[in-house]
C-alpha cells in the first residue's frame, strides 16, 4: 500500500497539512479533522456504544491533538498518533463510567428480530451462503452484533474494533495501545472467540 502513488500523494498532502497546523493554520487543522473525523468517530462509537459520548470524545480527541500538534515529530503516522489519543481517552472514559449497562443481546422481539436472528445464525454457522455486506445493512442483525461486541470487556473490544472493523495491523494496534505484539495477538484471538461464543449462545 505504501508503494501506491495515491497513498504517497495523500501522505505528502497530510505532511503539508500537519506542518501548516503546527504553524497555527486553522484551515489546515480543519482539513485534518474532516479527513479523519468519520473513522475516529466510528471507532470510538464501537468502543463506547453511545453516539453522544462518542461525539464528545471525538471532539475532545481532536482538540487535544491540535493542542499538542507542535509536539508531533512524525515518529509514527499521524493516524496512529490520533487514534492513540482517541482510544486512550475513550478507555479512560469507559473506566470512569464503569461497566457498560448490561444489555440483552437478543433482539427487541417481533418478526423482524426473529428473521434477523435466523439470517445471522445461518450465516455465521455456515449453514447458508449470504452476503456479509447485505447482512450488515440489516438494522436488526447489526444491532445483535453490536450488542454482543459491547459485552466484551474493554481490552478485547478495543483490539477487535481496531483489527476487524478498522483494519489496522498488529504493529499499529501495538503502538496505539502501547502493548507488545504478542499481547495484541492473544487479545485478538480471545476477543474473537468471546464474540463467537456470545453470538452462538443467541443464535444457536
Amino acid at each position: 500500500m505504501k508503494d501506491n502513488p495515491e497513498y504517497q500523494n495523500q501522505t505528502l498532502e497530510e505532511e503539508v497539512l500537519i506542518k501548516r497546523s503546527q504553524r497555527g493554520d486553522l484551515e489546515a487543522a480543519g482539513l485534518l479533522i474532516v479527513r479523519y473525523q468519520d473513522r475516529l468517530y466510528n471507532t470510538i462509537l464501537k468502543i463506547c456504544s453511545n453516539p453522544e459520548d462518542a461525539a464528545e470524545l471525538t471532539q475532545e480527541t481532536f482538540v487535544k491533538v491540535l493542542e499538542k500538534i507542535t509536539d508531533f515529530r512524525g515518529k509514527s503516522s499521524f493516524y496512529t498518533w490520533l487514534f492513540r489519543i482517541g482510544v486512550n481517552l475513550t478507555l479512560n472514559f469507559c473506566k470512569r463510567r464503569g461497566r457498560l449497562v448490561m444489555q440483552s443481546i437478543d433482539g427487541s422481539g417481533g418478526d423482524e428480530s426473529e428473521r434477523a436472528t435466523a439470517r445471522l445464525s445461518g450465516y455465521l454457522l455456515c449453514r447458508e451462503k449470504a452476503d456479509p455486506v447485505g447482512l450488515a445493512q440489516d438494522k436488526e442483525a447489526r444491532e445483535i452484533v453490536l450488542r454482543a461486541l459491547g459485552r466484551l470487556d474493554e481490552e478485547q473490544r478495543v483490539v477487535l474494533v481496531l483489527r476487524d472493523i478498522e483494519g489496522l495491523s498488529y504493529q499499529e494496534i501495538a503502538e496505539i495501545l502501547d502493548i507488545e505484539l504478542g499481547t495484541v495477538k492473544s487479545r485478538i484471538s480471545r476477543a474473537r472467540a468471546g464474540l463467537r461464543d456470545m453470538l452462538e449462545a443467541v443464535l444457536a
Binding site: D38, Y41, L45, P132, A136, D164, I165
Partner: peptide, 9 residues
C-alpha cells in the same frame, strides 16, 4: 461481517 458493518458518519 464485522468488516462489513457500515461506517457511522
Amino acid at each position: 461481517l464485522l468488516g462489513a458493518l457500515p461506517i457511522e458518519k
